[in-house]
Structures are given as C-alpha cells and as structure tokens.
Design a protein around this nucleic acid. Sequence first.
DNA 1: TCGAATGAAAG
DNA 2: CTTTCATTCGA
Length: 878
Amino acid sequence: MKGGGRGKEPPVEVSYKRPKRKCLQWHPLLSKKALDFSEEEEEDEEELEKEPLMVRETRGPKVPCGGPMEGEEDSSEQRARRPMNAFLLFCKRHRSLVRQEHPRLDNRGATKILADWWAVLEPKEKQKYTDMAKEYKDAFMKANPGYKWCPATNKPVKSPCHTVSNTRNKVWSFPSNSPKGCATAKKLPKTDSTPQLNFAMADPTKMGGLSMLLLAGEHALTAREISSSSSQSGATDVTKYPDKSSLFQLAEISSSTRQPSLNDTAGKGKPLSQGDQAETWSGTSQQGKPDVPTANVKSPLFKLAEQISSDSSQSTAPEGKQCGQSALFQLAEMCLASEAGKMETEDDTCAPHIKTETVVEEAGDTPDLPLSFPPSSSSMPTDASLLLLSGQAGLIKKKKDASTREPAKVVDKDKSPGPGSPKKTLNKRQSSESELESLFYTIEAVAKGAWGDAEEDMPKKKARTAAVTILVESSSPKKRAKPKAKRPLKAKEDERKVKDKEDDGRTELPLTVETVVNPASPKTEAKEANISSSTEPTSPSSPPAHQAQSRGEGTGGQRRWVGSRKSERSCKGALYKTLVSEGMLTSLRANVDRGKRGSFRSASDEGGWTDETWAFSQMGPSNFKKLKKSKSKDETAPGLGKLEEEFEKKFNSLPQYSPLTFDKKSTVVTKKKTDISTAPEEQPLKPAKGPSPSQKNTLFHKIVSKYKDKKEKPNTLDKDIAMRSDSPMLDSATKAKPSPAPCATATLNPEAMGTSPSVPVGSQKRKARKSKITHLVRSADGRVSPAEEDKARDLTPEQDDKPLSQDTLCNETGCYSASKQEEADRSSAPEDLPAFFSLAALAEVAAMENIHRGQHVIGDSQKKDMAKTPVLISCADQ
DNA sequence: TCGAATGAAAG
DNA sequence: CTTTCATTCGA
C-alpha cells in the first residue's frame, strides 16, 4: 500500500523518486566542487596528484558515464536540491548526537527523537534554525531564480550516469538551476565564449591568481567571482556585505561557480554552461549593478580583470576560465559601477603598469618553471595527459578570449605554462604563479615592510609575514618540500583540510593554509597555536616557523620581482586597497582550514560562536562513529572553499543542544502536560489545538494542533544513561569551550519551555501516513527498539512512561542547574548570537578589520592553489 | 529503496 | 488540503 502513496508515480519514476542525485544539492556557499576534495581528501590525494584536474571522477561509478559530468550537467537541469528547512537543519545538526546516544536506533527513530527535541526547542532556539533556513532558502532562490520545489513533471531522469553511488557526494555540486520548467533561471546565453572550456576541473591552482582579484572583487560583486576561483578553494571570505547575509552572497557566488564546481565533480567536463550561467547569475545576482558595460568602460580594472582571468584560467585551469572571466569581469564592472570613480582613478594608473609588469615578471619568473611553454598558445598542449589537455584547452580558449579583449601579452603568459610540463599542476601553478607572483611580490614587499609604513601598524605584521610565506611557497614549488614535511604532522587536522590540499596534490599549500589562517587575525593565531599545540603536534604550523622558512626561500624569488618594480606594487596595492575599502572583506580568515573542524572562530572571533561550532577539532581524531557518517556530510564538503566553510560555520554556529537538555525539556514538558493548566499562554494541550498558537510559538502551532501524545523516548532510561555518558563528552568535544557543566552545554531552560511550548511536544505523525501502518509492522519485526515503543505508544497511548523515565533521568543526570545557567547565558549571552550571526558578524568584523588594517587574507582550502594565491593581501600602501 | 520527522512550496 | 521533497542512514 504504501507504494500506493508513491504509486502515483509511474514505476519508473518511482525509482527516481529518490533520484536525489539529480538534484545537486545546493549549497549556498558552495558550489562546490569541493566535494572532490572532501571526499577524496587524504585518500584521494594521491589521485589528485595524479590528475589534479580532471580527476574528479570521484566515484568510479560515475566515471564511466562518460562524461559523467556531462551527464550531470546534461541533466543540466539537474535540479538543485531544495534548501533544507529549519527542522532539517536541526536534524542534520543533531542527528549525530542522537545517534550517539542511541547507537542502535535507526534513523527513523532518531528522527522521531529529533522531532521531539524540535518540538521542545524554544522558539528562540528554533528561531536560529528558522532564520538560517530562511537565509539559506533566500540564497538558494537567488541562485536559482526560477527554482520550483517540485520539479513537476519533468524529470530528467536519466540514465545511468547518475548512478552515482553517492548521491550525496555530489550533492554539493550545483545544478544549474532551475528546473526545467522554470527556465527562468538560466536565461542567459551568456557568452559562451567557450563553452567547452568548462572542461576544466577545478584546479586548485587556478584559484590562486584569481583568488586575489576575486577577493578584492568579491565584495564588490557578489563574490561570485570568488566562487569561480575559490569556490572550492577557498577564499573563504564569505563576508561580504553586511546587508546580505553571507549565505546569500555565497549563493550568488555559487551560482556562478556552481557549474564549474560541478565540472570538477563530474570531473570532466561539463560543458558549459557554466560560463553562461555564471554570467547569467551574475547578472541576476548583481542586481544592483547591472551589467556594466564592460566593453564600454574598459577601465583599467577591466583590463586587470581580464588579465587575471586569463591568468587564472591558465593557472587554474580549465574550469576556472569561464568563471574566472566572467567573475572577473563582473568584478570589474562592479567596481566600476559602484565605485567607478575611485577605482578607476587609482586603477588607471596602476592597471597598465600592472599588466606590463605582470608580463615581464612572468618572463622572469618562469625560470622556476620547468619551462615556459612556447607562447604559442595555439600549440596545443601536447597532451601530456588528457586531463591537462582538457584543462589546457579550456585555458587556451580562455586565453583567446582574453586575448581578444586584452593585449596579447596576457595571452602569452598564459600560454607559457604550456601543457608540456610534466605536471599539470605545476604548470598551472606556474602560470598562475606569474601573476600571482607579481601580486605576491607586492604583498611580500608590504610584509617586508616596504609598505609597512603605509599600512597601519597593525599587529598584522605577522599576517604579512604569513602572507609572505605563503607567497614564497607558492613561488617556489620546491620549497614545498618543507611544508610537506610538516604536513604529516598536521595530519589529523589536515585531514579535513586535506580536502583542500587534495587537489593540489602537492603538499605545498597545507602550510599555507594554516599560515593564512594566522594572518587572518593575530588572535586567531594565538588560538590556533594553542589549539594546534594542544590538539596536535601540528602546532609546528606555528606561524613563525613557517614564516621564517618560507621567507628564506621565498625571499629569493621575491627579490626578483621586487626588483622589477615597485610601481606595480603600488598600483596593485592601491587596487586592492580600493577593493578592500569598498567592502571587500574578504578576510578569509583561514577559516578554510579549520573549516569544519575547528572552526575556531577563526578570525572573526566572535565570541565563541565558534565554540559552538562543532568541536570538530576533537572529533577528528577521535572519530566518533558518527563522524564517519557525518563526514560524508559535513566533511564532505569540507574544506573546500571558503564558501563551504562559511556555510559550515554558519551551520555549525547553529546551537547544538545536548541531549540532556532536551530530556529535561521533555521532562518539563511532561510535567506540563500533567499540569497542563500551567501554561499561561497556551493551554495547549491536547485539546487544544491549536489554532491558537501562542504568539511565541508560531512554530509550534502545528505541534500543538496536532498534539497527540508526546511521544516519549522509548528507552528513556537507557538513553539517559547513554546520554549522560556521551553527552558530556560530546558536549565537551563539540563545544569545546563552553561546557562548564558537562550536561549543561546548551540547555533550554525549562522555564522557557514551560511557557510556550509546553505540552505535547511529541511528534505526532502528521497524519498517519501511509507508512504508518507499515511502519508499525515493520518495526515490530525489526526489533525492539524505541521505535517499537513509539509505535506501541501510538497504538496505545501511554503517557506515564515518559514522565517516569524522565524523572529518572533527571535524577541521574542531575544536570539541571547547570543547564539553566547556561541557558540564561545563552539567551543573553553573546555566544549564541554571535554564533548565530556568525557570518554577518564575521563579515562586519572582517570588514572592519580590513578597512582598518586593509588586509585580506585568503585562505583557500586548496593548498596549492591557495598557496599561490596567497592569501594575504595587504593594501596599505599609499 | 523506504522511511521517520518538520516545513516550505506547489498543485 | 494534499503531495513533494529536503536530510540521514539503517534495514
């Protein structure tokens, strides 16, 4: 019968019912290709190395598809997955906890419990989730303008390609958009300058160059660019304007990025539309700044953008191209549009120089490289590897585009990196390096102190240093060796980060990333240091050391540049500065690394919201069982780009309540139930219904109305016990900081609960769905699990159990007091808020900082790429 | 592949 | 109102 429910769908469809895969999950932040990293991470690293670019097939299965990517894209339509609602977010965040408590409990059971928790949750707490969900949704919508929740009729269903074993894996990748029906989304034809371009995977490498610009531009644009460059990698900046939520911004970015990312994921080429989309999106997203006529303006910025784009494309590789260009252009446009005046002025002077310089530098730089390839871009890559080819091809194309727009010089540069080089990565890097180098060198100069004066004396010196270091690393691949060595140490931490690294395959970046982090905020550094030390030996990452090392080597390289010209620096610096001033906050803050894990609040440091974030740091090593699973999710994406990070951060920021808390609540509730009358506002209970939800509980209205019997937790006692033991750990682990009282981590206060929610909380099944019956049956068969009890409960309502059990719990646990306190804290406390707003706050803070200091840090997840990118930009000159 | 839950959206 | 689908992951 149940089938009946679904029955509606044709058999075939049925299967696809769950075709989630079709839909790529949308991530606000990300678009992520990151997946690749995430998944592969350590393991894959090797692979990555091998084929940094294309690779991505990720799962074998898909690969076969022959272009899986295409397939995915083809499905071009693959719909993005609908955004999670508050409850889902909540579930996602707490499911692991539940599972820990009740290992044997299956997800269904867990879900029930979660539902209970959710019901119990105070509006306040819920609010966070709802807000986040809303934000998420908004971002999503923005990204996918015409998106329809229900795909409606069409379903692409397609073939086997999708087979993807892991739907989820891909998840992050973005679908383009709107479902077919709507089409709105995509409208734009975009320039398809090079549709094929898309091949490119996402190379980390590319990220580097672009990242710089992007970073700068991010703010201005919506950051879409970033996505292109770093989406995965890293620019973590999510912060953009305060106005828009970070997610929203991300969404924009992602929109642009997503395809590329997809490509990566897919591994091969997607065709493209990426570019188109990107542009399109950009158009949409930009909103405010419509399209500025690029052509018209052609201000220096544009040129710069072009260059960068070209470079980036080269460096980055294939995928980036399109995105990069579009992004860059957009950025340029944005800049022009928004601040046209300023930017131009400054830029004007600089731009030209920059270009020239860049070129020159490149020539100079090349030395490191195995060789610069012949300029003849046309000369196709020899095909060192298909991957490369694809990537190159893309590059080339881009180049062309670039060339058209821009002077040949750029092109040459691009070309230089030729395919021939044995390692794609290297090549890319090199190419990217050239540009990057110039930038870096500027940065370095700053760091060194050349600009120091100009810059504020901030403590950032460290940061600078770090930046320098990074630069250095990027500049010389060889140096990497050291970093690599370190890597091992980091290992654990790296794991998460690894993802980022993965791409590069070269270890270089890892350090970089860390370093970057440091730069982000001195404080952060300190924290990290502590953390690292405490957590792991990784500490070696300690900035100073790295810096020193890197510098040593780096300096040599830099010098050249330095010698080449300061003017560039100044120009660039000015440019950056301008960008920064505009609003770019891109303080990446190194979050990237921490990403999920630590999320030590990186730069922003808001008060502890970080803490709230998971305690991944701890988790990592220990691996709770959940981890593995969670990994898929969280980690999945992990380290990718800043986007991801942000998303994660945000997600993490969501408060995670300890089971105890809920239990208590439930208890309270129960009590209430018994008392029923107590609740002032609502009278909830049963009879009620709730049409009148209390003002507070809008959310609850449903519950109230539906209210059935509270569902108790089946094995309360057991749970409790489990909880007790686990919870503390979890809490401590999770929350790292806050848990004065083990139990208490985040408790809701009973009082609050009492007031509004009271009651019924229990999840009632909405209606008895089809499944209900089945469910019951099944469960019976299955085993005695809470589920059964629940079922039983359903069948025969028993209320008594709960209270008793709860009481017991309470006694045992005895956590109450603490919980309350915490609760109080939370309510008033900054922590929560910060956590909640983390993104916004970060953005603001970052902005403040940036403006103030004028630094940008870019942390990319991808080491290599990032490394090049580097991360820090200080614009202080002037 | 189903399902448990909630919620948003679409029909 | 009802139905889809988002997340999760053990059966």
